[in-house]
Simulated assay, not measured.
Amino acid sequence: MPVEFRIAEVVDLVGGTLVSGREDHLLSGVRTLEEAGDSDLSFFSHPKYRSQFETTRAGAVLVGPEIGVGPRGVALIQVDNPSHALATLATKVEELSRAFVSGVRVGAHVGANADVDPGAAVHAGAVIDDGATIGRGSEICAGAVIGRDAIIGEDCIIHQNVTIRERCVLGDRVILQPGAVIGSDGFGYEFVDGRHHKVPQLGIVVLEDDVEVGANACVDRARFGRTVVGEGTKIDNLVQIGHNVQIGKNCIIVALSGVAGSSKLGDQVTLAAQVGINGHIEIADGVQLGGKSGAIQSIDEAGVYMGTPAKPFTDEVRQWRDVGKIREMRQSLKLLREEVERLKKE
């Protein structure tokens, strides 16, 4: 934690209650319960780590409302959700640590007809093509390429080596991690006369407000119209979003997942790692798909699903249980056959 806080300041920032310890104690780092020292802040939110909590040497620990007593000499700050409180503090630290200076740096290339707000920052090595628009407070880092007529809203962070291709649109407070590609061609071909002929992808990508896209993730432009990622959705590293996909608000898509073209995800959908979504299907609001699951057909009701093809979680667990009994069942069947053969001989 590159910024120092007194415990009283931490309590105020996270909206917590100090139940033990000194308000003036200085904190300058964040570490796990096991690693933390007297100048570090930590958090305790899962009973699995009870033993580490009881022996921690942290200067202060964020705890839930049910924790009123802790190790001797350790300050306890009660909050509703310790993990979220730590994230809130980390956000503040990030804001204070960010060295944002507006203006176009020497070495940046900005097209003559580009519209870069005076309150935006464009770093050396970045390329802003003709007709592109960069909103106030947005930061375009080294190596990023913003294509012709692309629109980037306010307070966005476009990290190193990101590509935003022509005419794509980003809302406000969008974050693109290094290497992300927005608006790459959709994977479309027609097989004619023994060859694959490329189908031009004439549409765009729209990332609504507060979307984040992870490192080396790709969101393909639509064949026609728009590929849309809804407000507040978070996409992890190495995710592929196909052309004309429609993703709702506040979804979570975890690493190595793939969403095939023209599929539609509702609001608050969660795809765990390595999930595959078939093309041209719909996933209802509130669906959660477990890791390595495959949705082959549309899912119409909210709930937790697992497996390939994806099925309700309880059904999948029951199937796992049955598979585990196969050896025992084969042995029982063998004994029954032997008994039948014996009876035949009598």
Results as ranks from 00 to 15, higher is better:
Lys198Leu: 14
Gln177Arg: 15
Asp185Pro: 07
Asn216Tyr: 04
Val181Leu: 10
Val206Arg: 14
Ile204His: 00
Pro200Leu: 09
Phe187Arg: 14
Asp193Tyr: 07
Gln177Phe: 15
Gly188Arg: 12
Gly194Ser: 11
Ile182Leu: 05
Asp185Ala: 08
Gly214His: 08
Leu207Glu: 08
Val206Ile: 15
Gly188Asn: 11
Val206Leu: 03
Arg221Pro: 08
Gln201Lys: 07
Asp185Arg: 11
Val219Thr: 00
Pro200Asn: 05
Ala217Arg: 01
Ala222Asp: 03
Phe187Asn: 10
Glu208Val: 11
Arg195Pro: 06
Gly179Met: 09
Val174Tyr: 00
Pro200Ile: 08
Ile175Lys: 08
Glu212Trp: 00
Ile182Phe: 02
Gly183Ala: 10
Ile204Asp: 01
Ala180Thr: 05
Gly186Ile: 08
Val213Tyr: 02
Leu176Gln: 02
Ala180Val: 02
Ile204Glu: 01
Lys198Arg: 15
Val213Cys: 06
Ala217Glu: 01
Pro178Ser: 09
Ala215Lys: 08
His197Ala: 13
Ile182Arg: 04
Pro178Met: 11
Val199Gln: 03
Leu202Phe: 08
Ile182His: 01
Pro178Ala: 12
Leu202Ser: 12
Cys218Met: 14
Val211Gly: 00
Ala222Glu: 04
Ile182Tyr: 02
Val213Gly: 01
Gly214Cys: 08
Ile175Gln: 06
Gly179Cys: 09
Ile204Tyr: 00
Asp193Glu: 15
Val219Lys: 03
Arg195Phe: 11
Gly186Thr: 08
Gly194Glu: 13
Val192Asn: 12
Val205Met: 03
Arg195Gly: 06
Glu208His: 14
Val205Gln: 02
His197Ser: 14
Glu208Gln: 15
